[in-house]
């Protein structure tokens, strides 16, 4: 009995963490990490717990899917157009440094969907990174964006449903070790892009319907916030 309890890893971790500490929690098996000084009273923790066992979708307050403007990405070259259009749409009054962050994260999310979300049935990578593929009629990548006064909401959905939790936890662990292994010698993997997105976003949520679709969404604050350690990570596997 005790052995079984020891083996059972917590799915939700809450407390006040740095991003590297959160990555260690994720590596330890936590699929939901909420960092704030509210602990278990953090409304996001309660929302996660209430939605954790559900098969359907639910929304965190930072998610603005209903208000998003959606565009389809048809090919690898398309992502440059989508990025350019969105960043241009933010307007000239938005600071360059914020645009840089948003551009980096959005490109990583779209590239991950193209090169890692859409895989062969056996799980092998379908496209090499130097290829410039066009999607097949049966495949789709849908990008939703909202530019709010206090930040930006990004949502990228692909028809692959292949982003496994183990892949994410190992990538985060490797990237936060900050050692020579941080960059793998092999061709670009999904891990570094997700790590860069997690580092720069305040909230990151991944929903996977295995073999059907993946939705990665995030919220990026426009300005410096008083408590930088308030953030969340959520991975939901749906049926």
């Amino acid at each position: 009995m005790l052995g079984a309890l020891k083996k059972k890893r917590p799915l939700t971790a809450y407390g006040l963490f740095s991003k590297p500490e959160a990555a260690e929690k994720i590596f330890g098996g936590a699929r939901h990490v909420h960092s704030s000084n509210l602990g278990a009273h953090d409304p996001l923790v309660q929302l996660t717990e209430s939605g954790n066992g559900l098969g359907g979708e639910f929304r965190f307050p930072w998610e603005l899917a209903a208000e998003a403007r959606y565009v389809d990405v048809q090919s690898a070259e398309d992502r440059h157009r989508v990025l350019k259009d969105f960043l241009h749409g933010l307007g000239s009054e938005v600071h360059r440094t914020f645009k840089d962050v948003v551009g980096t994260v959005l490109e990583e999310l779209i590239s991950n969907a193209i090169y890692h979300g859409l895989r062969l049935e056996n799980g092998e990578r379908k496209f090499a990174r130097l290829q410039k593929p066009r999607l097949q009629p049966s495949e789709y990548i849908k990008v939703g964006t909202v530019a709010a006064p206090d930040g930006v909401y990004l949502r990228v959905e692909d028809s692959g449903g292949r982003l496994g939790f183990d892949e994410i936890r190992e990538a985060f662990h490797r990237c936060y070790q900050q050692g020579v292994d941080q960059i793998q010698q092999k061709e670009c993997g999904a891990g570094l892009g997700l790590y860069m997105s997690f580092e720069q976003a305040r909230h990151l949520r991944i929903d996977v319907w295995p073999g059907k679709k993946t939705v990665v969404s995030c919220w990026i604050n426009r300005k410096r916030v008083p408590n930088e350690d308030n953030f969340s990570f959520n991975y939901f596997e749906r049926t």
Partner: peptide, 13 residues
């Protein structure tokens, strides 16, 4: 003007 994860990897290598 921008660096993506593959660009980072290229540069690091």
């Amino acid at each position: 003007t921008s660096i993506n994860s593959c660009g980072v990897r290229n540069w690091v290598n």
